[in-house]
Simulated scan of single mutants.
Amino acid sequence: MASGGDDEQVPEGCNGIVVKNLYLSCDPYTRNRITKPDTGNYYVNYLKPGLPINGLGVAKVFDSGHPNFKKGDLVWGNTRWEEYSLITDFQLLFKIQHTNVPLSYYTGILGPPGLTAYSGFYEVAMLSEVLEAKKRYFPEVIDIYFENVGGKMLDAVLLNIRAHGRIAACGLISQYNLDKPEGVHNLMHLIYKRIRMEGFVVFDYFHLYPKFLEFVLPQIAEGKIAYLEDIAEGLKSGPSALVGLFSGLNVGKQVVLVAQE
């Protein structure tokens, strides 16, 4: 749906909702979805030519045929890169209950990308006193590492991580644009140091989202978390903003502002 108006209504007999998209999230995994994976186990669908990109965003309900949503509700979750979207799948759509933070935060620190990317940070935050004490004596050694880069970065981590260290992996951005992905070296250190390395995706932890908000919202309100955003204005800026992720053009979470509330 390119534009809104009186004709942008939920089709008769449909229990979906039409939303006005406000913010879109630019995420590296979108690049993976351009190429159909060789395996059938990829956790999200690949993108189909000729159709809008679907991804995470913040939106406002424009029209509703669903009893749980009414016009004016703010939501975050799976939408499309367009001005207005018809949504009929509600598994990845959530009402926004807390509006005392910028709505754009629900594309990052308060949404699935944030729940994944910042989970390592929260674990470290809760162990901060212990870690700070260790850093006084072992400043060069890593206890916990959040892996979202891959390649030479992971090689270096395997060399420098402490025995019984943990690596939580949810991305390998350095590999997404390579025709032939790089191998990982220093893997013997997994054995020497008894390292635990485990991959995860956010969908496994949606049941913890209310508890996540209980923890992070006060942290934001008290200024204990410094969160940066790089906001590109206008839907047309979306493609270049997405491409820029892979050359380091963004400073902070990359967001596309589609429209004001």
Rank of each mutant, 00 (worst) to 15 (best):
C26M: 02
V130I: 13
G108Q: 01
E123N: 08
S64A: 09
T35Q: 07
L24S: 02
I96R: 02
P139G: 05
S119Q: 06
N41S: 15
S128E: 15
K135A: 06
G111L: 07
Y122C: 04
E82G: 12
E82F: 13
I142L: 03
E132P: 03
F138T: 09
F94C: 11
K135C: 03
Y84R: 11
D89K: 12
E140M: 09
K48Q: 14
Y106S: 03
T99Y: 01
Y46F: 15
I87T: 08
W76P: 02
E129A: 11
G40Q: 12
T39L: 14
F121W: 05
T30Q: 08
Y106G: 02
K48C: 09
I144M: 07
T30E: 09
G111F: 05
Q97A: 07
Y46W: 15
Y137N: 10
V124Y: 02
Y29K: 06
P52E: 10
H66T: 02
G108W: 01
F62N: 01
I96A: 06
A133L: 07
A125N: 08
V58R: 00
V61S: 00
G111K: 04
L115F: 15
K48V: 14
G108K: 01
V61N: 01
A133P: 04
K71E: 07
D27Q: 10
Y84S: 09
V141R: 05
Y118F: 15
V44Y: 03
L74P: 00
Y122T: 04
D143C: 13
N45C: 11
L86D: 01
I144T: 02
L74M: 00
S85D: 13
P139C: 07
S25A: 13
N45Q: 14
I142D: 01
Y43H: 08
T79H: 07
Y137G: 06
L93D: 03
L93H: 02
F138D: 08
I109D: 01
T39D: 15
Y43P: 04
P49H: 08
T30D: 09
R31C: 05
D27S: 11
K48D: 09
S119F: 13
L127H: 14
S104H: 01
L24N: 04
G65Q: 08
F121K: 02
T79A: 10
T116D: 05
P49G: 06
E123G: 10
T39P: 12
I34K: 00
Y84H: 13
Y43W: 11
D143L: 13
G40E: 08
Y106W: 09
P49I: 10
I34E: 02
N100I: 07
E132M: 12
Y84G: 02
L47P: 03
T30F: 12
K60V: 14
F121G: 02
I87V: 13
N54R: 12
R80M: 12
T107A: 01
V101S: 10
S128Y: 13
G50F: 14
T35P: 04
P102Q: 04
A59V: 11
P28I: 05
L24G: 05
E83M: 02
L103K: 03
L51C: 14
L86H: 03
D27E: 13
E132N: 15
P52A: 07
P37V: 09
R33Q: 12
I109V: 14
